[in-house]
């Protein structure tokens, strides 16, 4: 069964609703996470309980005595957001069944960074997905540990500068390729998996609506450009987001009940050099000496894209 979003998203209508994430949070200016969280929560028409593991969003939205959350929210630890929300969801089912709480629909959402998702929390996430709890897990993917100061994660692209993969005289940035987390999640055969980015807001919000409607776990990996970590001007967050899709660095696609669907095909595909030129974290790659690295990475991205196209052909509607 393929879930269709209930209604077409009408921004003017939605914009009259109060934000579930209040202003006064301390995300950096231009931070994509604020944009993405607002888009996600505006796409959900149900009461929600939110869990965030340790990370930028967590520290910037819940700093005693202030909270930016107008919905129930919990931060437990770094690695265990999936288990925490699984416990909440299990309690919801138990208490509802036993008549201890009102019988109403509540949705459960995790907003986690790539560190919490790709690295330290992978086991907890995998376990919760396998057990089939009904919750939506959003990865706010800014491709490094930004909260602790731009350290590499397994979401970081090869040859990227971070503070733990510095560009040195011998090694030009991160030596390892990034992990294909979305495919790893898809391999759990959960009802709904997707990649999204905030510039494609209608796509993103539609995906959220599909994800929140399923019975069982859903996962959306959302690219979150980071002003500080990626080294660009704060005004360009959405433009950078679009560039990621246009260079095929961040394909927008979904795996909807086993059906792979490409949601955006850039025409024409922009060269990876455009991506590198747009951000300071890649400034070393623009140097002539590193031209071979750029060629290598372009091949990498092209291969990933070809693989994705193949999957979308093989497992089409």
């Amino acid at each position: 069964m393929v879930v269709e979003a209930k209604t077409r998203i009408n921004l003017r209508e939605i914009s009259n609703k109060e934000d579930k994430l209040a202003p006064g949070h301390r995300l950096c200016l231009g931070c994509a996470e604020g944009i993405v969280v607002r888009q996600v929560l505006h796409a959900i028409d149900y009461p929600v309980v939110v869990c965030s593991p340790t990370g930028c969003l967590e520290i910037c939205t819940g700093l005693f005595p202030y909270t930016a959350w107008r919905v129930p929210w919990v931060h437990s630890a770094f690695e265990n957001a999936a288990s925490t929300i699984a416990g909440v969801e299990a309690a919801y089912r138990a208490l509802k069944r036993r008549g201890k709480i009102e019988d109403r629909v509540i949705k459960f959402v995790v907003f986690a960074g790539d560190g919490a998702t790709y690295d330290i929390g992978l086991q907890w996430l995998s376990g919760a997905l396998e057990r089939g709890h009904t919750f939506l897990y959003i990865c706010l993917n800014n491709e490094a540990y930004m909260n602790t100061g731009i350290q590499r994660s397994s979401a970081t692209l090869k040859w990227t500068w971070t503070t733990t993969t510095p560009v040195g005289k011998v090694i030009p940035g991160k030596k390892e390729s990034r992990k294909d987390m979305t495919a790893i999640i898809a391999a759990h055969n959960i009802p709904y998996v997707a990649q999204a980015a905030p510039h494609a807001w209608r796509d993103l919000m539609t995906k959220v609506r599909k994800a929140i409607a399923v019975d069982g776990p859903s996962f959306i990996n959302i690219l979150c450009p980071c002003v500080r970590g990626w080294r660009y001007n704060s005004k360009d967050t959405i433009a950078i987001s679009k560039l990621a899709a246009d260079t095929c660095v961040w394909p927008l696609y979904e795996v909807d009940h086993g059906i792979w669907r490409l949601n955006y095909k850039p025409s024409p595909q922009r060269p990876l050099t455009d991506w590198f030129l747009s951000q300071g974290r890649f400034s070393h790659l623009v140097a002539p000496d590193n031209a071979n690295l750029v060629i290598e990475l372009q091949q990498c991205i092209d291969q990933e894209w070809a693989k994705l196209e193949k999957l979308c052909q093989c497992f089409a509607d």
């Binding site: 925490t84 416990g87 299990a90 309690a91 376990g127």
Partner: peptide, 23 residues
């Protein structure tokens, strides 16, 4: 609601989540 979780850390984490939800 019995959760046969994937580690002890997850076991206590889930109990904590459940207890926060009033269970």
């Amino acid at each position: 609601e019995f959760l046969a979780v994937e580690s002890e850390h997850a076991a206590l984490s889930a109990c904590i989540g459940a207890a926060l939800a009033g269970a």
